[in-house]
Design a protein around this nucleic acid. Structure first.
Lengths: 203, 203, 203, 203
DNA sequence: GTGTAACCGAGACGGTACGTCCGGTCTTCCC
DNA sequence: GGGAAGACCGGACGTACCGTCTCGGTTACAC
């Protein structure tokens, strides 16, 4: 017998097509980017867009939600590189990146799904938080704590509060801001306000 | 002839039932509060929940979107009464009210709809902004401007920026905050940070 | 006052219009004659045909069935005059009249209703039997019994059986006969068969 | 190429379910047996009773009438076996079978439909005649003609007339007879009357 | 090769909702 | 009271689409 002893033996028959899998995921993300909510998304539309039979989808995922979860999971989180010199600069870099991501169509739609389906599809939101929210939150926290450690920020800084203000301001404005005439340099300004408001009181 | 010249004469036939109209609106809001998005909402479910024939709905609204628009429009905006003494106290009152409103189930669901359907149903969002967002925004602006006028806030305060920070922080946290362990007195704290960060530099 | 004290006092208000009542009944019979079954009959159609408001019908009959019952009840049963001489001739006269009545459109439709609605609307059928079937049955029986009494028919004649054969043959053929090429003088022939088959055996 | 030239190739896709087809027909007959006329029959009720989607019905029949036609067509006509010895016995057997069939609920309702819808749905009636009426008529005629050939009946017997009397008596009584107190052995009696009335005059 | 199994396409399945129509009832106006 | 008008609820219509399932025919690998 020539069955190699290595781990999982390849199952008999034609192997599943990676191409089909990718096409399905891509089609799903495309449709999401076009503003489809989870319920507007139809397997039929995905299959058609991916050039794939409905069966092929059904063979891989047992429900639409599973598919969307997997699709969102492929969204990588390329955090911007931080200079690591000035805390202020790094914060601005981070916040501008966040705004940019949630500002374009795709980001906004993914955001919508993650938020509005939170009640009905907890697993979906959970996965999104884990893949997209947490990394950014962690980066933000690290920068702030670095500032505390380096003395650039006051030692008793309420990091959690600062994070809430910074991210809240940016994310909220990416949703409603455009209509409000908020300035381009919003990141810079809010960082300054927070740093000023949280700076050591006098000296 | 004795036809009175007064305005629009009452049309012939049985008049439309106000009760039915209210029941329909209420049913719609109920279903929204149960997490239905606009596309999950079905006229049939609304009719059944309201104890009303489908025709009675179609007679009044030509599309589901129109109905939802009207339903959201009935959400009144009972802003909390402001003491009008201290700007700081008034801000805290306002922000806490905002958080409370978006914290309960109904508020959260309405919020979800308004946000996630923004792209697909602009009229819906527009109406929501006009009825729910604008009044709050205006109230916030008035308090801030009063502070400027009274000298409680620095004269060159960037009111728009302050509003973005205050409302962004509160609204964003009403969505993601619960999982973050943010404190109960968030409103108080963020107001203090903003006031400190925007206070007249010297005195 | 000129209200006469006689019997039932006339109720206040405008008296009901007899004309409307007749028009409604007539319209109902018309529609039935056009082949409508009880369920195809609609109050709306009746009202429209009678030039009457739906209310006016609803005020008088509490259900469609009641109305149809009353309408059928107005169908009079003008039995043909019998010469009273020969039993054979009288039977032929009766049977030919029956065939004529169930042969024209109106008679056939009324028949259809009476028969097919028997299960669902027993009161309707009951009324029909009482007004239309019974008189004919009675006439038939009288002629036969007269023949027995006069010696024209054998004394032990089974009157019930004779009636079943005579009326069954005529009525059944009025339904299915036309396609069968049955002769015009069917009545005469069947009477002869029955009389022959039931005549005193030898002398 | 090895594509065989054999007949009609099986069409692509999932084949239609015979089970569904049968269930639909059965449900239709059930509802008819419950006294539904053609207009009371609703596709929705049939679908629900058959445990089938409405599409599954519409895929097969384009109209309610077509469905009913097919349903009635499935009613088989199991004529009773005839001994073939005595004409009199065979006639009695046939007539009793006819009475039994139109005596039970299902038979009565089918009869009602066939008769009362004759004007509105000629195709329906036509099919019913062809499937149910004709075979019986043929059997009756054959027995009678056998009697003529064998000398058991007079050679100049009017077969058509005899058929009209025999079937008319039986069918009519199956409708109105129960209330008339007609005897159990009606078949026997009417056969005797007809044979007597049509027997060769002298011998 | 041959076999196995996944592939694709097509189409029927049960189900839900659609928007329309119409029927019987109810309510109001005007004569 | 009577007519007209029209809203009311309910039920069925025929259609569309969805997710599922079931086929036939094809393709890619491992033996």
């Amino acid at each position: 017998m020539t069955i190699q002893g290595t781990g999982t033996a390849r199952p008999a028959g034609r192997p599943r097509s990676e191409k089909a899998e990718k096409a399905i995921i891509e089609a799903t993300l495309d449709l999401i980017a076009e503003g489809m909510g989870v319920s507007e998304l139809s397997i039929e539309a995905i299959a058609s867009r991916a050039g794939v039979g409905k069966t092929t989808i059904y063979r891989r995922w047992s429900s639409k939600e599973d598919l969307v979860v997997d699709a969102l999971a492929t969204l990588k989180a390329p955090l911007p590189p931080l200079a690591g010199v000035s805390v202020r600069d790094d914060l601005i870099t981070l916040l501008d990146a966040m705004r940019a991501e949630s500002g374009n169509r795709r980001g906004r739609c993914v955001m919508n799904i993650a938020m509005s389906e939170a009640d009905r599809h907890p697993r979906l939101t959970e996965r999104f938080v884990q893949r997209a929210v947490e990394p950014r939150r962690r980066a933000l926290r690290e920068v702030l704590e670095r500032g505390v450690a380096s003395g650039e920020l006051r030692p008793d800084l309420d990091v959690t509060l600062a994070m809430a203000i910074l991210s809240g301001t940016m994310m909220w404005q990416s949703k409603w801001g455009p209509a409000d005439g908020l300035p381009e340099d919003l990141a810079e300004r809010v960082v300054d306000v927070v740093l000023a408001g949280m700076a050591p009181p006098a000296g």
